[in-house]
Amino acid sequence: TQVHVDGVTYTFSNPEEAKKFADEMAKRKGGTWEIKDGHIHVE
């Protein structure tokens, strides 16, 4: 599962880990995350 944050791609083999990471990054940025085309995007 790929997580895209500010133009950087992080790859996780476990989708649950990817979601936890996205959640943390979104909180830090004061933003949100969503799943697009099977990838997670942090806004």
Rank of each mutant, 00 (worst) to 15 (best):
G7I: 01
K36P: 05
K27W: 08
G31S: 05
K36I: 15
T32Q: 12
G38I: 03
I40K: 01
T11E: 11
T1P: 05
I40F: 12
D6N: 08
D6R: 04
A22P: 00
A18V: 01
V8G: 05
N14E: 11
A18T: 01
Q2T: 12
G38R: 01
D37Y: 05
R28L: 13
M25H: 06
K29Y: 15
E43A: 11
Y10H: 09
A22Q: 02
P15R: 07
A26P: 01
G38C: 08
F21H: 01
K29M: 15
T11C: 14
K20R: 12
G7M: 04
V3E: 00
V8H: 12
R28K: 13
V8L: 13
H4F: 13
A26D: 02
G30K: 09
T32A: 12
E24R: 08
G31N: 03
I35E: 14
T9A: 08
V42A: 02
H39Y: 07
E24I: 11
E16M: 09
V42Q: 02
E34W: 15
H4G: 01
H4R: 04
K20P: 00
D6F: 06
H41A: 05
I40G: 02
N14M: 06
G7K: 06
E43P: 05
R28F: 11
W33T: 10
H41K: 07
E24K: 09
T9R: 09
T1S: 06
G31E: 04
R28M: 13
E16V: 09
E17W: 06
F12V: 01
E24H: 08
F12Q: 00
I35M: 12
V5Q: 01
E34N: 06
E24L: 11
P15K: 09
K29T: 14
V5T: 04
D6Q: 06
T32W: 15
G38Y: 02
K29A: 12
H4A: 03
K19L: 13
E34C: 14
W33Q: 06
V5C: 14
K19T: 10
K36M: 13
D6Y: 05
M25R: 04
Q2E: 10
G30W: 00
E34Q: 08
V3D: 00
K27F: 10
D23I: 13
K36R: 10
E24F: 10
D37Q: 04
E16R: 06
W33Y: 07
R28W: 11
E16Q: 09
A26V: 14
E34K: 06
T1N: 06
T11V: 12
Y10P: 02
K19V: 14
E34V: 14
S13N: 11
E43I: 15
T32K: 14
G31D: 04
W33D: 05
K29C: 15
T11R: 07
T32R: 14
P15G: 08
K27V: 08
D6L: 05
G30H: 05
V3K: 00
K19I: 15
F12A: 00
F12Y: 03
D23N: 10
N14Q: 07
H39M: 14
G31M: 07
H41E: 08
G38V: 03
G31Q: 03
H41T: 11
G38T: 03
D23L: 07
S13R: 07
H4D: 05
F21A: 03
D23F: 07
H41M: 11
A22C: 04
V5S: 06
V3W: 01
T11P: 06
G38M: 04
H4Y: 13
T32F: 15
A26G: 03
A26Y: 02
D37N: 07
K19N: 05
D23E: 13
E43D: 11
P15D: 11
K36L: 13
P15L: 15
E43R: 14
R28I: 13
K29D: 09
V5E: 01
E43K: 14
S13D: 13
F12W: 01
K29V: 15
I35C: 15
I35R: 03
I35L: 10
F21Q: 00
E16I: 09
T1L: 11
K27L: 11
E43Q: 14
K29W: 15
H4W: 13
T11I: 13
D6V: 02
N14I: 06
S13E: 12
A22H: 01
T32V: 10
H41Q: 08
F12I: 01
T32E: 10
T11F: 14
E17N: 08
T32D: 09
E16K: 06
H41W: 15
H39R: 04
V42M: 06
I40T: 02
D6S: 07
K29F: 15
G38A: 04
E24G: 05
G31T: 07
H41R: 07
T1A: 06
V3F: 02
H4P: 00
A22T: 01
A18M: 01
K20D: 09
G30P: 01
H39L: 10
G30F: 02
R28D: 09
I40D: 02
W33E: 05
T11S: 11
I40R: 00
E24V: 09
E24Y: 12
T32Y: 15
K19P: 00
E16P: 03
W33R: 05
D6M: 06
T11L: 12
A18N: 00
Y10G: 02
S13M: 11
E16Y: 09
V8Y: 12
V5P: 00
Q2N: 10
E16N: 09
F21D: 00
D6E: 08
K29S: 14
M25F: 06
N14A: 07
T11H: 12
K27M: 10
P15E: 14
T9I: 15
W33N: 05
K20T: 10
A18I: 00
G31R: 02
W33M: 10
G38E: 04
T1G: 03
I35Q: 09
T32I: 13
I35H: 05
A26R: 03
S13Q: 12
H4Q: 04
T32G: 12
A18H: 00
W33G: 05
H41P: 02
D23P: 00
S13P: 11
Q2C: 13
K19E: 11
A26N: 03
A26W: 02
F12H: 01
K36V: 15
I40S: 01
E43W: 14
F21I: 01
